[in-house]
Design a protein around this nucleic acid. Structure first.
Lengths: 393, 393
DNA sequence: AGGGTTCTTTTCCGTCGTCAATAAAAGAAC
DNA sequence: GTTCTTTTATTGACGACGGAAAAGAACCCT
């Protein structure tokens, strides 16, 4: 049940306690902080923070840093503690249907290098080859940075068991029970963490994005599919069977269009990329090559096209309202390539959401964040950092 | 942020550590256990369990108990540890629209006495008077049991802040910002815990019911309203704004009947008690006095009546599928007075659920549990026990 | 230079949990 | 009936972690 599939012998985090992990993560995500401030946020005594920080500084993971800027008018200025990004590197990889996106990040999870590799074939072998190529490239780039690469995170859509490091079922890739972590470890020699792609993005948002500091929020991704990452009680929800956040297959209209899952009126069957293209083709009678064309038509004001986007927005709004009603998150973050059409969605999402959110669930803050695929890969790197830092025997 | 609103000075749990609370809860919920077995389940060493158990035995909360039955063929027989139910008592109260149900439980949360008091008026004053009467009765009954009453749990529908002990908004009772814990403490002199009623029932199910041992499950209650309690990561979900589990206001048919929340086609607007009665009246033209009459008509086979129940079942099934798709619980427990009509629902719930559940979310085990209102009150008592045991400064 | 303020560290101590050894309570074997 | 085996429970030594309090450090201001 180790979240990382480890190679022979690798550099490990110097302290193996929950407190150390929490201190490190707090410093990582909440920027340079005075020890006293860390103590307040983590709920430890200042002394405990001093003691937790010392070995991490000695190991080079944290560093001190006086901040000339915000010197207080009174009292001793704080010795800020920050993560030394240059101390270590991680690789994050996101697999999509037609390419593999990889980023090399530092220990602060800042992207240093990003690479894309096209994917001809979705079979595990081909994907692994692309991952290998990507990682090889990134490791080469890492050579110049004089820091060890300590982990690889891989994000794949579908039912992923992070603990086992296996992809149980990915409809998109047509994979079943692929021991991806093990395979990637033998190829790359790195400790590998495998997780679902939306959950990986959710971790990135939790650490560095609009979910920072929130214990309950949701990330809704609009694109080829409609996905959702949930954070409840401060932890990403994985579900008992590995599946969770399937907002794309929430029914919003039982009489709606047929979905590939076999049901009618799923959010994805109305607002997924393929569904939008298809519906606009049907409405206009024009054959479209891709989503960009569909978007262009709607922007031009072709009759029927705008309405398709409006209905898509309503479906998404209803899906978000459902999440809000069931979980009462503090915030919902909408992201994904589909945001390119956000101007066509926005008002409909909002209108349906405010109408359908029950009681104080409507207080939920809905915001959009256009995030490129690199950000998903960064999330994968974040899961690798998580595994590296996490204290679990 | 204390979960219990305490009176002047009361008996407290002897040890204030997470480990002790966990050991006690494990023994409470998983029956008499050998220390070694407790150690295995809690993840502590046997020695730690011995040390945690001792003060609890000295304080009388736990007791030893040799089990002649399951003596092993080999080795030293285990000294089972169990909670001494007779050591302390708790009162649990559930407020409904027309009555207040109270139970007196022992420390094992077994119901010793149950009482109902009718409720003429839903104003806080009247409800508090009923609670006072009920508690007075139960305390009188407790006198004969020679054990102190250590807490009162109150379960109310609506938006309840357990930490503050206040009812922020209860549409059903038409309450706003009632500091119920404080009020009840001054009246009864007991430490009071206030929580949402469905969440209280969910705690009871988590401890003693079909949710025992599960870290992710849901309780769906069918009755006057349709509610839902969620357990994620082993904890009951309260939501950032106090509202969560509003499955009753998940939309299943945007063109459906109008709901009191202002939307169309909510689960509650189709499958709530009032909605079913109304729909059957409309379908048959017969005026009905209550849900029992509606049920009788459907059982007699009056045309149109059965169909209303069928549609209700479908709505519930879709709601459950939505929960399963979003959270991937291991189990969904259906309960509530509405189960009286379960024979008319069952197949439709199941059919829609299996069709609409996505991927391995369909592995979720859906079961029904007819639980009387006393069980809800017992849940309230369970929250009181939780507050009593919980280690939080 | 001295006082005020705030951050950091030190020292000491208590608590809690593990480890390893020991005790205890059986039945089985001879 | 003694001894062995097996399993459970307890003990005591030890170490790690975190808190409290006090001292130290760094700065500003007067």
């Amino acid at each position: 049940m180790r979240p990382t599939h480890p190679p022979s012998r690798a550099e490990t985090f110097p302290v193996n306690t929950p407190a150390a992990a929490q201190v490190f993560t707090t410093v990582l995500t909440q920027g340079p902080l005075a020890r006293l401030e860390v103590a307040r946020r983590v709920g430890l005594s200042p002394a405990a923070v001093t003691k937790a920080v010392r070995p991490l500084i000695e190991a080079g993971y944290l560093m001190e840093d006086v901040d000339e800027e915000s010197r207080p008018a009174l009292g001793r200025p704080a010795n800020l503690v920050r993560v030394d990004g240059g101390r270590a590197l991680f690789v994050g990889v996101k697999v999509t249907g037609d390419e593999v996106i990889g980023v090399l990040t530092d220990l602060c999870c800042r992207i240093r290098v990003a690479r894309h590799v096209p994917l001809a074939d979705r079979a595990p072998k081909a994907v692994l080859a692309s991952i290998a190529e990507l990682v090889h490239d990134l490791l080469a780039a890492a050579d110049g940075l004089r820091a060890p690469v300590l982990g690889l995170g891989v994000a794949v859509s579908g039912d992923v068991d992070r603990g086992e490091g296996t992809v149980r079922y990915s409809p998109f890739l047509d994979w079943r029970d692929v021991p991806l972590a093990e395979l990637a470890t033998t190829i790359t020699g790195l400790p590998v963490t495998v997780d679902n792609d939306v959950r990986a993005l959710t971790v990135a948002e939790q650490w560095f994005g609009a979910g920072a500091g929130l214990s309950d929020f949701a990330v809704v991704t609009v694109g080829a599919g409609i996905g959702c990452g949930l954070v409840v009680h401060g932890r990403v929800v994985a579900g008992a069977h590995g599946v969770a956040g399937e907002i794309g297959h929430v029914t919003v209209d039982p009489g709606g269009p047929l979905c590939h899952c076999g049901n009618r009126g799923c959010v994805e069957a109305i607002a997924g990329e393929a569904a939008v293209v298809r519906q606009i083709q049907e409405a206009t009678g024009v054959q479209l090559a891709d989503a960009a064309q569909a978007l262009a038509m709607a922007r031009e004001g072709v009759p029927g096209a705008r309405e398709v986007y409006a209905r898509a927005g309503e479906a998404i709004g209803r899906g978000i309202a459902t999440v809000a009603n069931l979980l009462g998150p503090e915030r919902v973050i909408i992201s994904g390539e589909g945001l390119a059409a956000y101007d066509l969605f926005a008002e409909h999402i909002r209108a349906v959401f405010t109408a359908a959110a029950f009681g104080s669930a409507a207080q939920c803050d809905v915001q959009t964040r256009p995030l490129p695929f690199e950000e998903w890969a960064r999330g994968a790197a974040a899961t690798a950092i998580q595994s590296f830092v996490r204290a679990d025997s």
